[in-house]
Design a protein around this nucleic acid. Structure first.
Length: 458
RNA sequence: GGCCCCAUCGUCUAGUGGCCUAGGACGGAGGCCUCUCACGCCUCAAACAUGGGUUCGAAUCCCGUUGGGGUCACCA
């Protein structure tokens, strides 16, 4: 049974990197009929907030990345909030201490900071010197944290599903803190204990965690638990090739909802950022689930490209049934059908709808009016009005035929005739095909608009 | 700085020793189609970081160099 998890810390919204990590985990779970667990790692009490937690959950929900176990839905390993699992960490820490694999340490923060600064001055990495290693400090020692006893010699090797074999010498490691004095675990320990408890079989997470992996493997081994598989996903970079951060365009995925993107399009784009399936660019969600695999996840970081995302969104818009688009954009299905192949996002559809479908008279683009609605075009517009009046009931194709006949009669291209009419009817020079738009608007409203436009010429 | 990871068009990537005069996609340039816009179609420009090996043969394997990134917390 494949069991994977997404374990965000509620210290901010869900951004692209987190969304992609969640997506890859989710795809793997769905592909293997496994379980996708959502776990909230809220042990940084100074930075975790309720709002962030909600924002992350909202983001996942919008994307359609549903979880089988976790907040709201519960599950056999509840609770799924680390701050509610303190007793579990304590139990495991005590067991490690009893076996001599961990120990209490009451070194003060000040001493440690001094050592750290000194190490920095000497351009060395800081390593805890092991002051309390053999003190056997008892439970209840004031201010004591628990440190994990790292082996001094040897090396740990693991096979990362995307990066291949990675080896770390144990001498590079040091006895890191796994439990604070107040019993709140630190990342490496909390994650390991929970992944063990929740029976996670594969850990897929950001690249920045590769260095944590050997330490965590050592902890799994100390705990006498099987080690899961690991897959480290490369970073997503901003246009400047810098890691995506709040300053570098790392916006909430929910911003894309505001901007009129389809959740599936975002998922499609994110999947292709770092993963590939031959030359295919556009995938439905079932296709993504079917085709996804770690073999084709790239090992190098990728730049987030908004233009390509927009293109993917456009493709999705074309492939989505009009009724669904209508629902999302808040427009009629008929109009959605006309707009879906020429809009890049839902907002363009909604804006157009509000501009010239909803109101009785559209807001006119004055610059275009000055150019298109002139004394020269007036007779044309009058004749067009008559044509519409006469042929409307026969449908858009008949109207078009009649317009073509009229244009030809006047020695004009259809464009010369259609543009003033389009402006009169929609208020703009850019719209879906004129005759279908007119059909959708209705005869009375169309004629009223043309009359209003004629008024403007005077 | 130590350790670790990465390196194909501007960007996302295909490529797993011969199919590569390196393919696709976004973006760019030009054109076709056309009632506007968009779609679609066609054409063009655009890359294997670098130096050594290994091999009959290297974008593909190995080493060095360079460049980029990650990480060195009682953050995650």
């Amino acid at each position: 049974m494949v069991r994977v998890r997404f374990a965000p810390s509620p210290t901010g919204y869900l951004h692209m990197g987190g969304a992609r990590t969640a997506l890859f985990n989710w795809l793997w779970a769905r592909k293997n009929k496994g379980v996708f667990v959502l776990r909230i790692e809220d042990t940084d009490q100074s930075r975790s907030t309720q709002q962030s937690e909600e924002a992350i959950i909202d983001g996942l929900k919008w994307l359609g990345l549903d979880w089988d176990e976790g907040p709201i839905v519960g599950g056999p390993h509840a609770p799924y909030f680390q701050m509610q699992r303190l007793a579990t960490y304590d139990r495991h820490a005590e067991s490690l201490i009893a076996q001599g694999k961990a120990y209490r340490c009451d070194c003060t923060k000040e001493e440690l900071d001094r050592l750290r600064e000194q190490a920095a001055r000497e351009k060395r990495g800081f390593k805890y010197p092991g002051t309390c290693r053999n003190k056997n400090l008892p439970r209840g020692t004031p201010g004591a944290v628990v440190r994990f006893r790292m082996p001094d010699e040897g090396a740990t090797t693991f096979k990362d599903l995307v990066k291949g074999e990675i080896t770390t010498q144990h001498k590079e490691l040091h006895d890191e803190v796994i439990l604070r004095a107040d019993g709140v675990p630190l990342y490496n320990f909390g994650a390991v204990v929970d992944d063990v408890e929740m029976e996670i079989t594969l850990v897929a997470r950001g690249d920045d965690h590769v260095v944590n992996t050997p330490r965590q493997i050592l902890m799994y081994q100390a705990l006498k638990y099987p080690v899961p598989l690991f897959a480290h996903l490369p970073m997503i970079l901003g246009a400047d090739k810098q890691r995506l951060s709040k300053r570098h365009g790392a916006v909430s995925v929910l911003q894309y909802r505001e901007d009129g993107y389809l959740p599936g399009a975002l998922l499609n784009y994110l999947a292709r950022l770092g993963w590939s399936h031959g030359d295919q660019e556009i995938f439905t969600i079932p296709e993504l689930i079917e085709d996804f695999g770690w073999e084709h996840v790239g090992a190098n970081a990728g730049v987030f490209n908004p233009q390509k995302l927009e293109w993917v969104n456009q493709q999705w818009l074309k492939l989505t049934p009009p009724v669904e688009i209508a629902k999302m954009a808040g427009v009629s299905p008929e109009f959605a059908a006309l707009m879906q192949e020429r809009a890049r996002n839902l907002n363009e559809i909604r804006d157009a709808y509000r501009a010239y479908i909803v109101p009785d008279l559209p807001a006119y683009d004055e610059k275009a009016v000055a150019k298109q609605l002139t004394k020269e075009t007036r007779p044309l517009l009058e004749e067009a009005r008559a044509v519409i009046d006469r042929t409307f009931e026969q449908g858009p194709q008949a109207m078009e035929q009649a317009f073509r006949a009229l244009a030809e009669q006047r020695g004009l291209g259809l464009g010369k005739l259609a543009q003033p009419v389009r402006l009169a009817v929609t208020g703009t020079t850019v719209s879906p095909p004129l005759f279908e738009t007119i059909a959708l608007l209705g005869k009375a409203r169309t004629l009223r608009r043309i009359d209003a436009a004629l008024e403007r010429i005077k």
